[in-house]
Nucleic acid binder design. Structure first.
Length: 517
RNA sequence: GCCGCAUUCGUCUAGAGGCCCAGGACACCGCCCUCUCAAGGCGGAGAUCACCGGUUCGAAUCCGGUAUGCGGUACCA
């Protein structure tokens, strides 16, 4: 096996001078989050722009919250976005490939144990037997005294004999890292120079739990070193944790990578984007019919700009232009309206066959939900594209836009059937006359160019505004006041169904006329 | 509380001392196109560049302070 890297106690700082190696390290404790996707994107862009390597590593040491279902959601989402990684697990649950495998932390336990042992041998770490209750009481006391909370160090100077005594009682200690004193400084690629005094770190922090499972701050350092990560590109929420990581890199004798902390994506109230206040799951955007091109394009421009006025850019075009130094420092509110606009832009750019392929699952979903009665053929969809493509804000809008074509009967409200400027009698007359004209046009000639002139002529001869006549017909055959262009709609519906729906609408009007009032 | 980070139109942003009494885009409003809805075109409104002081002939851009916001402060990641 390839585990136990650095068990030889390597201490020489070799430096990280080769091609860049970056990683995205999500925890499978929830569905793929927009923020994680953005971090993944920026790592990917940096790797592609610099000819570096992009790695996926799963941080699953929080066994209580991690699950294979979430792992699958994360991998699926990243694949959907087109953010392909060079090393890491391709399929949820499956073994990963790559020179530093495995890429799941629960499969890398021996390496953390070895690293912890090295720190223990150097007395840079010590077992702490404090109970959660004691820790909690300490914290409360500190809060009450307006003191910064932190580990007070009860177990920092236990003698080997005292430790042995506790172990003999069957107590297992967590491992705490001695933070020492001084100031940790680093030059963040996006934030610039940052300095934090070690006294603000909250005391000696735990790197291994009492049950033996390693903790985040520890695993991230051991793995980043083992995987030879050169640039740690992550969310700003980790900025304050960075000194802890640097201390560990040094203690372990590893070269310290470069850091780049990305601005946060915000809720409308400017707090960190959260499930409570925003739609954060990438899968929800997929389900609603956003195309990956648009989400990528949107996310890339959230916290970064090309410096030009280019706005619609593909993943490859963005990678060509990407520069980590140009990333913003301030957080950015997630603006769904702008995402929708971008989505429309990308949908309009799709080739016909591609659009049909992407639309099909959404039409199928309409069928599954019982909102339509049958599946249209690809030919049918293809003939609809000229009038539908520019009207789709999302793929999911297809049912709303054209669903009336694939149902046996369309619900029509009598009230909307009568155009604003018309009354009942005019509408009845209009639909009756229109019906005759439409019926007179044979199946063969049932084309938009054949339908429009005679209907327009009818309106003129009666002194009606064409728009009113067309609106009456529109509502009669679709049940709605907003649809694709009328004549294309009639053609898509076909002569028979158009006539049938006109008849039904006229019957509806007749019952209205016969009713009270 | 402590530590850290941030702050240009409602939103995303351009801007790295004079080209900016601040440009683009989304959203909004109006007009055009038009059978509705979109798309598209044109135009409009919208930012005393958080505030105060300093440096400079000149500051959105440099320095200091203040305010506000956010993040972190776990045997979560």
């Amino acid at each position: 096996m390839t585990g136990l890297p650095d068990a030889d106690g390597r201490t020489g700082v070799t430096g990280l001078t080769g091609a860049p190696r970056v990683r995205i390290a999500p925890s499978p404790t929830g569905p793929l989050h927009i923020g994680t996707a953005r971090t993944a994107l920026f790592n990917y862009l940096f790797a592609r722009h610099t000819g570096g390597t992009f790695i996926l590593r799963l941080e699953d040491t929080d066994q209580a919250r991690s699950s294979i279902a979430y792992e699958k959601d994360i991998l699926d989402g990243l694949h959907w976005l087109g953010l392909h990684w060079d090393e890491g697990p391709e399929v949820a649950g499956a073994r990963a490939r790559g020179p530093h495998a495995p890429y799941r932390q629960m499969e890398r336990l021996p390496s953390y144990a070895a690293a912890a042992e090295r720190l223990r041998a150097a007395d840079l770490v010590y077992p702490c037997y404090c109970t959660p209750e004691l820790l909690d009481a300490d914290r409360k006391a500190q809060e009450a005294a307006k003191q910064p909370p932190g580990y007070v160090g009860w177990c920092a100077s236990l003698t080997p004999a005292q430790q042995a005594e506790r172990e003999a009682q069957g107590r297992r200690g967590a491992l705490r890292f001695r933070v020492g004193e001084g100031v940790v400084a680093f030059d963040d690629i996006v934030r610039g120079h940052v300095e934090i005094d070690v006294s603000n770190l909250g005391g000696d922090f735990a790197i291994v739990r009492a049950d033996g499972l390693p903790l985040y701050h520890f695993t991230v350092v051991v793995d980043d070193a083992a995987m030879e990560i050169t640039h740690v590109i992550r969310g700003e929420d980790h900025l304050s944790n960075t000194p802890k990581h640097i201390l560990l890199f040094r203690a372990l004798g590893y070269p310290v990578p470069q850091f780049a902390h990305l601005p946060l994506i915000l809720n409308p109230d400017r707090s960190k984007m959260s499930k409570r206040k925003s739609q954060t799951a990438v899968s929800d955007y997929v389900d609603q019919g956003f195309v990956p091109e648009a989400l990528i394009n949107y996310l890339a421009l959230l916290g970064w700009a090309t410096g030009t006025e280019e706005e619609i850019l593909s993943l490859d075009e963005i990678a060509e232009r990407f520069d980590l130094h140009a990333v913003h420092k301030g957080g950015a509110i997630f603006d769904r309206k702008r995402l929708e606009w971008l989505n429309g832009q990308w949908i309009r750019r799709l080739a016909a066959e591609d659009l049909i392929d992407r639309l099909r699952p959404f039409v199928q979903a309409e069928l599954d939900a019982g909102r339509i009665d049958w599946m249209p053929s690809d030919d049918e969809l293809r003939s609809l594209l000229p009038v539908v493509q520019e009207r789709l804000p999302t793929l999911g809008a297809v049912g709303d836009l054209a669903g009336f074509l694939w149902v046996h009967e369309v619900p029509v409200e009598a009230a909307t059937l009568i155009p604003k400027r018309w009354d009942l009698a005019t509408t009845q007359a209009g639909l009756a006359a229109a019906r005759e004209i439409i019926e007179a046009i044979g199946d063969v000639a049932f084309e938009a160019e054949e339908l429009e002139p005679p209907l327009r002529a009818l309106a003129e001869s009666r002194g009606w505004k064409p728009g009113d006549l067309f609106m009456a017909i529109r509502v009669a055959v679709t049940g709605r006041t907003a649809t694709p262009p009328l004549f294309d709609t009639l053609v898509a519906l076909g002569r028979e169904r158009t006539l049938r729906r006109l008849d039904r609408a006229r019957e509806l009007l007749d019952t209205l006329g016969a009713g009270p009032g």
